[in-house]
Design a protein around this nucleic acid. Structure first.
Lengths: 397, 397
DNA sequence: GTAATAAATTTGTAAATCAAATTAAATCAA
DNA sequence: TTGATTTAATTTGATTTACAAATTTATTAC
């Protein structure tokens, strides 16, 4: 009933094994502070349960030591099957991972309509997860957990969608709807949080306990990791970096308010301004504007420069508030390169509180379309892992 | 050595007793999920150690129940003596608390100079703590912990001061200096964090796990409470709300940068603007300007209104990032009333992401000079409490 | 004075950790 | 090939700890 001692040990060891990838029992004892005896008993349980497995050789150092050789332990990939998906504008991308986190399959599908009622969306997703599973000869029922990223305002722990551009209805208990239709555990989250999750599990955030991920695609999003956990506000609408205000009564944003960072830094802001300034009716592509700016077009340069300075200002505010050790600028579109530029970062450094200590590291991580889905899967993986451990206690009783 | 089960139980029970103020064992068992038997044994330990005490009557409900009457437990005030202090511009205010948190004495003293070398400041503080203790017939050596709040950039866990307006030297291991001079454990923190601490322990933050405190005095500060703990960034220079930027290349701030919130909302910003606008050489008092604004003076009104709108914008950014359940506007000066005004808060509400859920509660808490010192003491109390529990384990061994 | 009732404690048992002893699996040296 | 050496992993036995159930304690009701 209560969280007993043993469960704490099991959790500690399983997470440590996951972190280390491959690790012998004696090191586990060192790393976790749990005695060798207890490590033996607990890992035996985890082995029996099929959650981990032994790997013969320690490939690392073969300096011909004598003594009984270490036997590495690792997460057993075959233990569970995890699916993750991200709903984008008119496409859904999915990945299938094993329990180790290695990718087994992926899939991409178009949606006929970008916006659907919750029930229909669930039907579509159920079909896609089935298709995905069949790619490796499995069925949907074999999937232990499905993580889904959806744009909008999401209350992740409750699986509740306040609003999403992909759903016709507001305020849906979408997590429950999905679980009913899919018949497997579903874990729902805001898409920006999932990038943070992906960076934490597979990306540049590995080994960091506190960091911030800023995502740049059509809008500007943010994920916050504090104390090794995704921080979500009380109402599930925190981390709205794109809608922090950088100018009082400034430019009009898609959200209807004025002065949002997005209204200066996002793609549509650039094209809109260029259109307005030139008086042309046709929209120029962002790439066009960036190229023109580089080639000396003053108007274009001015637009791009302001976007960069506004972005730097927004970033600086984040640093002044959080003082994180790391900021990851993550995005799949190369066209946001003007925001990744070194002078933008330099501009940010000038706007933060000056201390005799290095400013936070800023790294850029450009990745493919599937990263979102992998983040969603990582979120599911975390939850499935936890449930697997809880399940063990039940079996014992 | 390792944090054993028993220690977890002790901590749980002690914090629960502190939270409940007075509580019988059987309720403790209910509240913490620890069995009655274990509650008996652990509370016996805590009693023996003198950290808690029994109180005969449960004053609450005397509805003539039968059965053995409950015996309330409470923190034993006499267990430890805690001091807290805040260094302000040219004064130091101090409080002396017992282990329950009730105030036993307070003291205020002027500094000859606002800025001192670390060693001298430590000497001054040692004398003041001695004076404080003697007010109740005790000496400095009887104080179990001293919490100190100091303006500037402070790395609290390390007791390191990057920079402070009260010290001549930068980058001082001030915590260690103080401990050497005072001869008692010292806990150092940034002053804004201490207000958060005070609100969490004694004020409006009680019962909330995640909230934000914005302090308004000569500058604008912020304290962040996440998961019932003060959040401090990696370098100890987070939560610099006053220096978040609200205008690109805007008004000049004391910190040398442009566009800081402080440069629009702080006292000196108002007086400066009024002076510039009127062309007068003499500075007007903030109260003057506020009164004039109310009486229809257009220039004054414009200045005050902009300060309010900028402040609303800054607050909205905090909400858009954190989505906290509660924001406490805390300050000792009535003159900041223009920032507390209802229309400022309403302005903030218009600038946050709109969801079908109530915006965060905003409350105003005006308090006296000693609140800072009480926060410092609360910080020390938390640490001393923790150490008392750790000490028990050592005794047993 | 006795029954009833509820809080707190005691008792005996089961769970779980750990240090120390033991076993297992390898290398090295002769 | 054999035995010494070395190190990892397991087993053993003691100890800690938590808890359910039984018991004691302190009160009211009748």
């Amino acid at each position: 009933m209560s969280v007993n001692q043993r469960e704490i040990g099991r959790r500690k060891l399983l997470t440590e094994i996951r972190r280390q990838q491959r690790v012998p029992r004696i090191d586990l004892s060192e790393l976790t502070g749990i005695s060798r005896a207890t490590v033996t008993t607990i890992t035996a349980e985890l082995l029996r349960e099929g959650l981990i497995e032994e790997v013969s050789s320690d490939s690392g150092e073969k300096d011909s030591k004598r003594g009984r050789p270490k036997v590495d332990l690792k997460i057993r990939g075959a233990a569970r099957l995890i699916a993750g998906a991200k709903i984008s504008n008119k496409t859904v991308s999915l990945v299938l991972l094993d329990f180790e986190g290695t990718q087994l399959a992926d899939h991409e599908a178009d949606l006929e309509t970008a916006v659907l009622p919750a029930a229909e969306m669930a039907q579509v997703l159920a079909g896609l997860v089935e298709t995905l599973a069949q790619k490796i000869g499995m069925s949907r029922q074999d999937v232990a957990g499905f993580g889904l990223g959806i744009a909008g305002v999401v209350d992740a722990p409750r699986g509740f969608v306040h609003w999403s551009p992909s759903l016709t209805s507001r305020n849906v208990q979408f997590g429950d709807v999905l679980e009913r239709v899919l018949g497997i555990p579903v874990f729902l989250d805001n898409d920006a949080n999932l990038v943070a999750m992906a960076e934490k599990s597979f990306g540049l955030g590995q080994g960091h306990n506190d960091f911030i991920v800023v995502t740049i695609e059509s809008g500007v999003g943010m994920g916050i990791v504090i104390n090794d956990e995704i921080y979500r506000g009380t109402r599930g609408c925190g981390a709205e970096f794109g809608h922090t205000k950088v100018q009082l009564e400034g430019a009009l944003c898609r959200c209807g308010q004025r002065g949002c960072l997005e209204a200066y830094a996002a793609d549509y802001a650039l094209t809109r301004e260029a259109m307005l300034a030139s008086g042309e009716a046709a929209e120029r592509q962002v790439e066009d504007i960036l190229r023109a700016a580089k080639e000396g077009d003053e108007m274009a340069a001015s637009i791009v420069s302001r976007a960069g300075r506004m972005f730097a200002m927004g970033l600086a505010n984040i640093v002044n508030i959080f003082d994180p050790e790391l900021i990851i600028l993550a995005g799949e579109q190369m066209q946001a390169s003007h925001l990744y530029a070194e002078d933008v970062i330099a501009g940010m450094r000038k706007l933060i509180v000056q201390v005799d200590k290095a400013p936070p590291e800023v790294v850029v991580h450009k990745w493919g379309n599937l990263m979102w889905a992998r983040g969603a899967a990582a979120y599911a993986l975390e939850n499935v892992s936890e449930n697997a451990l809880l399940g063990m206690a039940d079996n014992a009783a």
